[in-house]
């Protein structure tokens, strides 16, 4: 399968100006992921798993290294790409599921889920139909579809979040603990959707507290624990 992402010598730390302090997150990470591959990031709390995902998405600015993403437009280094290009890739090729929904005041659950489709050019009625189907898949009750998710429980918000982020197939999907706060049915729906996306060719990089749910999908593991053997094939891994 073609390579989707080549990460080489990636390092990230934070400068806290008010403490005059540098905090290292991870150093010299290298790995790659191919289309249809599912890569698990593992490591203790604080090993930098979420930081790595955010750096790949460019919510965090890397300090050194290359993130070569093979986009539909050709290879591009996400570490140095212009903001406008990153914004474009986020709309079209790179998805990121975080643990939290960014709800907007006065925007309904179905409108939030339909938004990525509308921005991709799908007509509003069709986008809403597909959004409702996605909400149903993740077990959000129909009476909540037109309601504002700002007041939903954490679990219901996370279902809306998943429906929204996974509605469009992406080339690269980043998952930061997507099963946190989900009930069993929603977890099953998520795993089924991830299997579908993987089969469709989406490259997935994920952090899971309890990877048991997705064990059968994982192809490789990257261990961020300092001094660990960085990359392992899936068969050698004990979770």
């Amino acid at each position: 399968m073609p390579t989707v992402l080549d990460v080489n010598g990636l390092s990230k730390g934070f400068t806290l100006h008010h403490l005059a302090k540098e905090i290292a997150a991870f150093d010299e990470i290298s790995f790659s992921v191919a289309a249809g591959e599912f890569l698990l990031l593992k490591g203790a709390n604080g090993a930098g798993k979420s930081t790595l995902l955010r750096t790949l998405y460019r919510s965090y600015l890397p300090q050194a290294g290359v993130i070569r993403f093979h986009s539909d437009h050709g290879p591009i280094d996400l570490a140095r790409a212009a903001d406008v290009d990153i914004a474009h890739l986020r709309r079209t090729e790179i998805g990121f599921v975080t643990q939290f929904l960014t709800a907007r005041p006065r925007v309904s659950a179905e409108a939030l889920v339909a938004e990525p489709l509308r921005l991709a050019g799908v007509a509003t009625p069709e986008a809403l139909d597909r959004a409702r189907a996605a909400l149903e898949t993740f077990g959000v009750k129909p009476e909540l579809w037109p309601a504002y998710p700002t007041t939903f429980s954490g679990g219901e918000q996370q279902k809306v979040n998943l429906a929204r982020t996974l509605i469009l197939p992406q080339k690269l999907l980043l998952l930061d603990e997507p099963t946190a706060s989900l009930d069993a049915n929603a977890r099953a729906a998520l795993v089924a959707r991830l299997a579908e996306l993987k089969a469709h060719g989406t490259a997935v990089i994920g952090v899971f507290h309890h990877p048991d749910d997705v064990l059968h999908l994982i192809d490789r593991v990257v261990d961020l624990t300092p001094n660990a053997i960085r990359e392992e094939v899936r068969d050698d891994v004990a979770f």
């Binding site: 400068t15 008010h18 955010r54 460019r58 919510s59 965090y60 600015l61």
Partner: peptide, 22 residues
């Protein structure tokens, strides 16, 4: 400082931006 909105809010680089965000 200038950048993508989420980057400015999550990983501000300049001392003044950090002060503002915090």
């Amino acid at each position: 400082e200038a950048g993508l909105a989420d980057q400015i809010f999550q990983d501000p680089q300049h001392a003044y931006t950090q002060q503002l965000v915090h």
